[in-house]
Design a protein around this nucleic acid. Structure first.
Length: 424
RNA sequence: GUGGGUGUAGCUCAAGGGUUAGAGCAUCAGGCUGUGGACCUGGGGGCUGAGGGUUCGAAACCCUUCACCCACCCCA
């Protein structure tokens, strides 16, 4: 019989990794609360049209990476490949724009893309997604990056770098597109196959190519960055000024363009050299036109997403356990009868008391206790029962004490001995 | 979708045509009949990813297929 396993690109997340995930989420939630972001859960499955309209129908994501199927009602539905589309939908559907001037929301959950897995890339992956609607002030652009640096600091990520750029508003992007097309038109034969495709659909993306010859071609090409309109230049400069006031080091990467159609103005990426080819672990930017395109009032907006798997790969945080843990070791059936009342007392006090279900030799139980990292082992056998006591062994100091056998007294006395407990 | 690499015990890996496929770690037991980590001894564990072929003989060679990893593409 063949054993079933997960689908390609889907994984079980457990053990140390899930602890790291939870830690990353906890730290993020803490800072989101400080900065006034409210949590929202949105559906994993939405109408395909939502993603087509927001992300763009010629992007790779919607063209070939979505898990799309026809449900029994005949609708085309898709597993979300990213969160922003659904967040915009929720912002409009729940009427947030009418209730507050600025809506700051975040969500945490799985995204799905039908890609070939590699280091730091899976078909089901987790994002922490943050969106702020209703403010065009570059201060909020800078504030987002500040919040990111605070989170990364607490998660103990070092050696990352932040790249920023502006991809301009609709107007300056449209005029630049023409400039770019006429430039590349003469150099078509120098571009790689992929870039020829990009030339047809989204010439901006040629700047993203890693092919040496293409990089060469773009070396002397006009940059969007250099032909931004007055308003975009001033917005970007004020953004940079704020960043320096926040003491945030960034580098301007004129080649940085994003793969989703909705971005306008500020875009940014946080990368780490420790990640392999998929080095961006946080990315985002402004999308001032999207809300209106989705049928809402004209609303400036900005957001970013954290790739949790990638962040977990580079976080050097170690998860500390808190509080002492106890183990109950018993010799003989008579002693085992004392387990339940003792266990109940420990649990009611919120203390961790482990034990072996099929207790074998004491030696075996001691090994078990040790392998689970128990700090104290309570040992009970006929001798102790006769004397009305229980032995508590301090595993690290290799010292033993006698405690009363009555559970309440036992806990009280043991806490006296362990109240200077510190995690090593 | 394309390319490269790897599939042998729970994990990391040996064996490169020739008895019964090994080692370390992990696990269980014993040494120590009631005391953990170190050490010693032993036990359990495998259709060598799957299917076909070549051969007296295949984990090994050939074909097919599947899976995983890395990279391209793209992206968090």
């Amino acid at each position: 019989m063949e054993r079933l396993r997960t689908l390609r690109g889907f994984r079980d997340i457990f053990g140390e990794e899930i602890q790291k995930f939870k830690f990353i989420e906890d730290v993020s939630r803490k800072f989101f609360d400080i900065f006034g972001y409210k949590e929202i859960e949105i559906p994993v499955l939405e109408k395909t049209e939502l993603f087509v309209r927001s992300i763009g129908d010629t992007t790779d994501i919607v063209e070939k990476e979505m898990f799309t199927f026809i449900d029994t009602g005949g609708d085309s539905v898709s597993l979300r490949p990213e969160a922003t589309a659904g967040m915009v939908r929720a912002y409009l559907q729940e009427g947030m724009y009418a209730k507050e001037r600025v809506s700051k929301i975040f969500t945490i959950g799985s995204m799905f893309r039908h890609e070939r897995p590699q280091k730091g890339r899976f078909r089901e992956f987790h994002q922490i997604d943050v969106e702020a609607f209703g403010a065009d002030d570059p201060l909020i652009d800078a504030e987002l990056l500040w919040m990111i640096t605070l989170i990364l600091g607490e998660i103990k990520v070092t050696g990352y770098s932040i790249e920023v750029n502006s991809v301009g508003c609709k107007e300056c992007r449209e005029s630049f597109r023409n400039i770019l097309i006429s430039y590349f038109e003469t150099k078509k034969d120098l571009l790689c196959e992929d870039c020829l495709r990009r030339f047809e659909r989204n010439p901006l993306r040629i700047f993203d190519c890693k092919n040496a010859q293409c990089i060469d071609v773009t070396q002397n090409s006009p940059f969007l960055y250099d032909s931004l309109c007055e308003g975009c230049v001033s917005h970007f400069n004020i953004f940079l000024k704020h960043l320096s006031n926040f003491n945030i080091e960034v580098s301007i990467n004129k080649r940085l363009v994003r793969g989703l159609d909705y971005y306008t103005g500020t875009v940014f990426e946080v990368t780490s050299v420790d990640l392999g080819a998929q080095k961006a672990f946080i990315a985002g930017g402004r999308y001032n036109g999207l809300v209106e395109e989705m049928g809402g009032p004209p609303t400036p907006a900005i957001g970013f997403a954290i790739g949790v798997e990638r962040l977990a790969l580079i976080s050097t945080a170690t998860i500390f356990k808190q509080g002492p843990s106890y183990f109950f070791a018993y010799v003989g059936e008579k002693a085992k009868n004392y387990l339940v009342p003792i266990l109940r007392s420990f649990v009611s006090k919120g203390l961790s008391l482990k034990f072996a279900y099929e207790g074998k030799s004491l030696k075996s139980q001691m090994r078990y206790a040790d392998s689970m990292g128990s700090d104290y082992v309570l040992i009970l056998g006929d001798d102790e029962i006769k004397k009305g006591i229980i032995v508590m062994r301090d595993m690290r100091r290799k010292m033993q004490y006698e405690l009363p056998l009555d559970p309440e007294d036992m806990i009280r006395e043991s806490l006296k001995l362990t109240n200077n407990f510190t995690v090593s």
